[in-house]
Computed example of a mutant assay.
Amino acid sequence: MPIIKSHYNPPLIFKSGHISTIHAGLYRIVSGIYQKRERITLSDQDFIDLDWSYAAYHKNVSKLVVILHGLEGNAQRSYIKGTAKIFNRNGYDAVGMNFRSCSGEPNRLFRAYNAGASEDLREVIEHILTNHPQYSHIVLKGFSMGGNLLLKYLGEPIRVPKEVKAAIAISVPCQLKGSLDQMSRPENYLYNRMFIKSLQGKLLDKHASFPSLIKLEDIKNANSMLSIDNLYTSKAHGYKDATDYYKKCSSKQFIPNIKIPTLLINAKNDSFLSECCFPIEEAEGNENFYLEMPKYGGHVGFFGEGEAYYNEKRAFEFATLV
């Protein structure tokens, strides 16, 4: 589809990509959302925790939004709760999917999650359709790394269930190597160190549970995202190395095959995204894929006046229109 013209124009201070990113990540509080946890067992006997919230003042709800968080996030993040809140208030139940190891408890296996683990999303949707059959209208929304996983899932050869009607992806590094290079820039130093420290903590948990599979010294020496992906992410998930992982899991290559209405919103001042993370040609070549590139917004920022942020209003609007 043609590129969508964006009308997002935040207050002056939030025209800074960094302020938008930091404020949304550290200072935003979303109240009035009460989540109920469901643990499901996957086919490999690992588990995933789902955090549910429900439509306010509605009975016999048949609509559901499934929300995917970003790297080292969880379903309690404000961007997850903000999305759940606007959909709950408009007749949708909501479920936040915590990726393996992200719900506050280490997962059972040596593997955890990665940017291309679409098999886990597939199992979650199958679980929902089997155990919660009242949902005949499902909308998917993914943020950052979770958005990459979502777009990959939608464009893979395996059929997407008919109940999945639309998808929205926000701030997506759809070319993983390009985003990695961007994260290595000086302007992203603090973000980069935050992710590395968090991931190293997860690797220490893996060493405690699987000391023969990952060495303490190697974890201490893994001081970059690339080295972590070479040491653990790629090997634990069946890829040859980080380069192989980035190549096979980048969602940009899957966009031409998406067959349901899908909206991607990537801000032009998102410091996490390189130029190749804006899939303009792919959008122009796929009538089901809509690309909006606001001038402002930062990374998973998109400040909005009132309770709902811009990306949340746009997600609900898009889900309603399709």
Rank of each mutant, 00 (worst) to 15 (best):
M225Y: 07
M225L: 15
M225Q: 09
M225N: 08
M225P: 02
M225R: 05
I228N: 07
I228F: 10
D229R: 05
D229N: 13
N230D: 15
N230E: 14
L231E: 07
L231Q: 08
Y232W: 13
Y232E: 12
Y232T: 12
Y232K: 11
T233F: 08
T233L: 08
S234R: 03
S234D: 06
S234P: 05
S234Y: 03
S234E: 04
K235P: 05
K235I: 15
K235M: 13
A236T: 04
A236C: 06
A236L: 03
H237A: 06
H237G: 08
H237D: 09
H237N: 13
G238K: 08
G238Y: 08
Y239V: 03
Y239P: 02
Y239N: 02
K240P: 00
K240M: 07
K240Q: 12
K240I: 12
D241C: 12
D241P: 09
D241I: 05
A242R: 03
A242W: 01
A242F: 04
A242P: 01
T243Y: 14
T243M: 14
T243K: 14
T243F: 14
D244M: 10
D244P: 10
D244N: 15
D244Q: 12
D244I: 08
D244H: 15
Y245P: 02
Y245W: 05
Y246A: 07
Y246E: 06
Y246K: 07
Y246G: 05
K247R: 14
K247F: 09
K248S: 11
K248R: 15
C249P: 00
C249W: 02
C249A: 13
C249T: 14
C249I: 03
C249D: 10
S250D: 06
S250I: 06
S250H: 06
S251W: 05
S251R: 06
S251I: 07
K252V: 15
K252M: 11
K252C: 09
K252E: 11
K252H: 11
Q253K: 14
Q253N: 10
Q253Y: 09
F254M: 09
F254P: 04
F254Q: 06
F254C: 09
F254L: 11
F254G: 05
I255V: 15
I255R: 02
I255Y: 05
I255E: 04
I255W: 04
I255F: 09
P256S: 13
N257F: 13
N257L: 06
N257A: 14
N257V: 05
I258F: 01
I258V: 13
K259T: 07
K259F: 04
K259N: 13
K259L: 08
P261E: 04
P261L: 03
P261S: 06
T262G: 01
T262R: 01
T262Y: 00
T262L: 02
L263D: 00
L263W: 01
L263T: 00
L264E: 00
L264R: 00
I265G: 00
I265W: 00
I265Y: 00
I265R: 00
N266E: 14
N266F: 13
N266V: 14
A267W: 08
A267T: 10
A267S: 15
A267C: 13
K268M: 14
K268G: 07
K268D: 08
K268Y: 10
K268P: 07
K268C: 12
